[in-house]
């Protein structure tokens, strides 16, 4: 009997032949995510006159299986920005941990600056210029950082399989909303949506905020209603979606995040009129 630990739990060589241990090797080519596994679907967001609204449902799918139904895909950053994740959930959780570290480092940095001897009361008036507390990363800075991170990982052929929306404010206190994806592609728009939302929700949101000027006229309530309406459309038509979702509003006063919203006033009446699927004839 072979008592070496290496042989524990393995088929006997004399019966099954030499064991093929190739999969155990930790040398050889480095493996990386080549496709997403557990995934979250759309994230949608729209700017309004003094902030941004973002929403994403609480579902994490394993292929077509609705695997986890209480996964929060929006996270605040420093109470000044929101980050919304579509795509692979494990990569999202990695990024979440990474952002926690970043936030802690940034908070320490801020602490040391505010204790500075010669920064006088003048801060008061400058504080008005930058709504975020002095020295803290705003949404534009955070988005830049994430885009560099994502682009770096794509260059290493080890991508983080996500599309990310970042909402908050830029340095000049204007609402900020931008996206970055697994290849490091970045873009910004008055309204943004990832995944299925790009097909279904984006056209609806663009009706309300086609341009920055349009978005600057939207009120908070209007923006929230548009987003809720889009979440409903997505639930109707996206098979990998859920009627429980998170919604976040970021304004100069901070982030308000509600993680247990339920879709209201659903009407499936339209479903009866759908024709052309399966055995159904006319």
């Amino acid at each position: 009997m072979d008592h070496r630990p290496q042989a524990w739990g393995r088929p006997r060589d004399d019966i099954y032949g030499a064991y093929d241990g190739s999969y155990l090797q930790n040398s050889g080519p480095k493996t990386a995510t080549q496709s997403p596994v557990v995934t979250g679907t759309s994230v949608i967001a729209i700017k309004f006159k003094d902030g941004v609204v973002m929403a994403a449902d609480n579902l994490a799918s394993y292929g077509s299986l609705a695997r986890f139904t209480d996964v929060k895909r929006l996270r605040p950053f420093l109470d000044t920005s929101i980050v919304g994740f579509g795509g692979d959930v494990s990569d999202m959780q990695f990024l979440d941990r990474h952002l926690n570290e970043l936030a802690i480092d940034e908070s320490y940095e801020h602490e040391s600056t505010s204790a500075a001897a010669a920064s006088p009361e003048g801060q008061g008036e400058q504080g008005a210029a930058t709504s975020a507390p002095a020295g803290k990363l705003n949404a534009a800075n955070l988005h830049k950082y994430l885009s560099k991170l994502m682009y770096r990982r794509r260059n290493d052929f080890d991508p983080l399989w996500n599309q990310i929306l970042v909402a908050g404010f830029d340095g000049q206190t204007k609402p900020f909303l931008a996206s970055v994806d697994l290849r490091g592609t970045t873009f910004s728009s008055p309204s943004l949506a990832t995944g299925f939302g790009a097909m279904l929700a984006q056209p609806i949101m663009r009706k309300y905020a086609a341009t920055e000027e349009d978005a600057a006229r939207l009120t908070r309530d209007e923006a929230v209603n548009v987003v809720k309406e889009c979440m409903k459309v997505l639930f109707y038509r996206d098979a990998r979606s859920l009627d429980r979702y998170s919604i976040a509003v970021v304004t100069k006063d901070g982030v308000e995040l509600s993680e247990n919203e339920q879709l209201e006033k659903q009407s499936w009446a339209f479903a009866e009129r759908i024709r052309g699927y399966g055995t159904q004839t006319v």
Binding site: A32, T33, Q34, S35, R154, N155, F157, P159, R183, T185
Partner: peptide, 10 residues
């Protein structure tokens, strides 16, 4: 094909 494609055309 099941490989990460680092490029797209925008």
């Amino acid at each position: 094909e099941h490989r990460f494609d680092p490029y797209t055309d925008n």
